[in-house]
Design a protein around this nucleic acid. Sequence first.
DNA 1: GCTCGGCCATGTCTGAGCAG
DNA 2: CTGCTCAGACATGGCCGAGC
Length: 281
Amino acid sequence: MKFIPNITFLRYFFSAGQSKSISRASKENFVSQSAISQAISKLEKTLGKQLITHEKNRFQLTADGLLLLDKCKQIFTVFSEIEDAFNETDSVFKGKLSFACTHSFALSLLPAYLSKLSQTWEKIEPILRFGHTGTIVELVKKGDVDFGIVLDNEDFSLFHSREIYRGEYHLYTAKKFTANAKNKFILSEERKEVSLLKQHFQNNGVEIHAYMEVSSWEVIASLVEQGMGIGFLPDYIAGKRALIPYEYSIPKIPYRILAISPKNRKLSRNAQMFIDLIGQI
DNA sequence: GCTCGGCCATGTCTGAGCAG
DNA sequence: CTGCTCAGACATGGCCGAGC
């Protein structure tokens, strides 16, 4: 074989390419920026290809750099599979576990799951990414995370999915309901569950309008706690907050929280373990 | 309100030198 | 010899005050 790669250099390049910064790569790998820069230069020399544009104060991959980044992703996936295989024979779980979820999930349900994880397998190193559903889907597609945690309000048939939690949407008010909150509905953007709610009111001859449209359930819950209105939320958000169900009964509007991963990629052993663990709680 | 220039923080590259 | 740190140079962008 003509090209014998230095695996440390590839690791540095991969790290810089993923984080789009030599500085961040240096912090991730506990070496200086210079070491990362030199490693990339040596890779370029070995390959005879320019991998980054070498502009001052700007990290940018060339077409060859992007190609190598993709190949590195495959290489390091194989490495983690090898690590998985050895850990499996040792009957232990350790190393990285990366996943993406929404802020609302991270603030509501995730702490209990992570607590259980750290108690059970203390050598697991979770890497968390946050964002809206679209961001999570992109991270999962690109292989930047092992799996994503999403609400089932979109079509995820292109992914392998597993239900990890289920609940219902409800209307909530503050424990101390104020007259100020009456008929002031605080809703998220027009999605399936919001349409169903509006449809129900319409069927009963009541037309409701969002007093306020807020694209974050956490923010809706906080506003409702302040007595600013009636919020429509999944029950896991209301959980530990000073909220009570609104007196007006609505039909069941269920939801499911799913762990999604690409169909063409085997879920890492750590990810499989964590999803199983969530299912047990 | 807008522009300009100075200052500072941040990020990258290069070369010298050191340790294993 | 290889891979690292350190120091210095340089580019860029944000902030802020002065001047118009």
